[in-house]
């Protein structure tokens, strides 16, 4: 179909205007939705934290969860740490020998594991294991009205379900990471001594010489923060899940993905806080 140029121009203007407007509107709407979601999440976090400092405390729940989060995560976290330490030793050997700097391997392994890879990889593994479990459990409790039932039985769901999970995860992660640090460094040691033929005593001495309190401590602060993030996002997504099995599935996915993203982002900021210049 052909229109006169004037009509064509007008038509274009209308179409442009319509689409541009729709486009901008959709950006605006999404942005507002985003802000609203952030606000809801912040409210949830504040409420949860405020319940952390007020009785009653369900210590038995907390103990059970600490065993579940910590002890049962050991195999996964331990294996991750061992292989990470081993691969670090291999990589830095093949890289550093080009500068005849093989002597730095012990230090590189120790620093990388304690500062970064121990807490971050443990955090990601635990987000997959524990964050998903929290979201699935609370999500199921939500859609089957078990959370509503709690409040009709004189039990505050925040105190009974959320606070124990937040505290258990925040306390357990640093303990897990201490173990991950040791296993990771040991993994590097095994490769260094048995594969690359370093002297065992010299390797250990190098490791201990280079490590400072801040290296380890910064890693443990990260671990605690990651534990908190994992539990908070697991609880938030589970607590607010809707619908049936599909809703619980979505909650679980969001919990793991958002916790993993937030772990990597907060890792940058905590690092900047400790070592940024």
């Amino acid at each position: 179909m052909k229109f006169s140029p004037a009509l064509d121009g007008a038509l274009h203007a209308v179409i442009n205007r319509f689409f541009v407007q729709a486009f901008l509107q959709s950006i605006g709407r999404n942005f507002l939705n985003f802000l609203e979601a952030i606000g809801r999440f912040a409210m949830f976090a504040i409420l949860a934290l405020s319940h952390c400092v007020r009785a009653p405390f369900y210590l038995k729940n907390m103990g059970r969860l600490m065993i579940d989060f910590g002890y049962y995560s050991l195999p996964v976290v331990g294996l991750t740490a061992a292989f990470t330490g081993m691969v670090l030793a291999l990589q830095s050997y093949s890289g550093f020998s080009r500068f005849s700097a093989e002597g730095a391997i012990a230090g590189v392994v120790a620093l990388s594991v304690t500062r970064e890879l121990g807490p971050v990889l443990a955090g990601l593994m635990v987000a997959g294991r524990v964050g998903a479990a929290i979201a699935a459990e609370l999500g199921t409790m939500r859609v089957t009205e078990q959370i509503d039932a709690l409040s009709t039985l004189s039990t505050n769901p925040y105190k009974y379900l959320i606070v124990p999970r937040l505290i258990a995860a925040t306390v357990t992660m640093p303990l897990l990471v201490v173990i991950a640090d040791i296993i990771g460094i040991f993994g590097g040691f095994i490769i260094g001594v048995y594969h690359l033929n370093f002297n065992a005593g010299a390797y250990l001495k190098n490791t201990l010489d280079i490590l400072t309190f801040t290296d380890v401590f910064s890693g443990l602060v990260k671990a605690a923060a990651f534990g908190f993030i994992i539990a908070l996002l697991g609880c938030y997504n589970g607590f607010n899940s809707k619908g049936g099995a599909q809703g619980v599935g979505n909650a679980t996915t969001y919990a793991v993905v958002s916790a993993s993203m937030l772990i990597l982002m907060s890792n940058f900021f905590i690092t900047a806080l400790f070592f940024g210049v």
């Binding site: 199921t140 409790m141 089957t144 009205e145 078990q146 509503d148 039932a149």
Partner: peptide, 8 residues
Amino acid sequence: FQGGALFD
């Protein structure tokens, strides 16, 4: 509750 809502 209509669905029971027992703690499983």
